[in-house]
Amino acid sequence: MKTELRVALGGRLYGVERPWGALPSTPGRITDLAVDRDGLVHVLLRRDSAVDPDGPCVVTLAADGRFLRSWGEALCLDAHKIATMPVGGLAIVDRDAHRILFCDDEGRVQKQIGESHRPGQPFNHPSDIAFAPDGGFYVADGYGNGHIHRFDASGSLIASWGSLGTAPGAFLTPHGICVLSDGRVIVADRENSRVQSFSAEGACLAVWDAFLRPQDVIADAEDRIHVCDSIPTLSLLSPDGALLGRCRPVLNGAHGLWLGAAGDIFLAETNPNRITRLFPVAI
């Protein structure tokens, strides 16, 4: 008989469903996911383009986990993170091609930021992207630069900040990023095993260090911050960083996470290769 798992987070009880979703067999492995305004779950797959056979970059699932379609066979060299855009569509971080691709829901590229295969123009192995309330966005330029780049809604670069290091405001792989409703920017500084909070202009406001290699951060409608790390735990923080709850919903850790409209929490696991869904249950 299958045992139902339960975890608690921030005063709420969740059931744990793993694996979730009818994912087809592909050469790619799950690296991230994003839920759009229609409840569709877009699962990002990455593969080693030097040795792996061709396969889709994105698998789209219905809200109940049914397979709908897959696409993007020639889209990315090294798909790393994915995010929904405020105006609809998806932004995909193509890490080792040093670019961000902005696609419609069918996978057609509408825009690109960063020059393909040209590190430093401006990205050097970027890791994640997050959108601000004003339509602008921030890119965590995680593996080569140790920077955060701020862009306006048109895609023009406004400012960059950060450096490689361990001091407050510096990074050892800014790996995940999200933006709160007041414009504060939250960064999972993975190899420093901490999460940092910044103003919209890049001033370091706080450093929270009760994590082991945090992989991703995302905020809910109340600006509560969810952090998945490599302990593995899922932590819930207040907007000011106070710990509201902690649980262990996955086996070895999640590389990405996203929130569903019905209170679900989706976690993208790489080992084992699967999606885990947390769903609210009555206490």
Rank of each mutant, 00 (worst) to 15 (best):
R69L: 11
S230W: 12
A268C: 12
L40Y: 13
F102S: 04
T31F: 02
P232A: 14
L267H: 01
V59C: 03
M85P: 02
R46V: 12
A22D: 14
P24N: 07
L164V: 14
H117S: 13
D223W: 01
N145M: 13
A140F: 09
D64Q: 05
G260P: 02
M1K: 08
I283D: 12
A170E: 15
R190K: 14
I113N: 05
D216S: 14
L5W: 04
P133D: 08
D128T: 03
A167I: 05
G263Y: 03
P272Q: 08
H149Y: 11
H255K: 10
V109T: 15
V41F: 03
A221H: 15
N192V: 09
I100C: 10
R194H: 03
R66K: 11
W258R: 11
P56T: 13
G55H: 07
R184D: 05
A97H: 12
P272E: 11
A34W: 00
A159I: 04
T31M: 03
N271G: 05
R12S: 08
V58T: 12
R190I: 09
V58Y: 04
C247H: 01
A79H: 09
P53H: 10
A200W: 02
D216A: 15
C103W: 05
I225T: 10
L278A: 04
D229A: 10
V109F: 12
R213E: 09
L267G: 00
L101M: 11
A167G: 11
R224G: 09
S160T: 11
V179L: 08
T173Y: 11
N192H: 11
T3M: 13
G183A: 15
P280V: 03
G89W: 03
G15P: 00
L5A: 12
C57F: 06
N145D: 14
N124H: 13
D105V: 11
L244G: 06
P119G: 06
W208G: 02
F171I: 10
G15H: 00
D182P: 07
V43N: 04
G256T: 02
G72W: 01
S116K: 13
G55E: 04
D48L: 14
S193V: 06
V7S: 01
A91Q: 08
R37S: 15
C178T: 13
A140Q: 08
A219I: 00
A132L: 01
L180A: 15
H42M: 07
C247E: 02
I158T: 06
G144T: 01
G120H: 03
G10R: 12
A63S: 14
W208I: 05
V179M: 10
G165I: 06
T173G: 01
C204E: 12
F151C: 03
G72K: 05
L77H: 11
S154V: 07
S160Y: 00
P168H: 08
F137W: 08
N273E: 12
D209R: 10
V16R: 00
A221D: 14
H255P: 00
R194G: 02
L234C: 04
G241L: 11
P126F: 08
C247L: 06
D48F: 13
R248A: 06
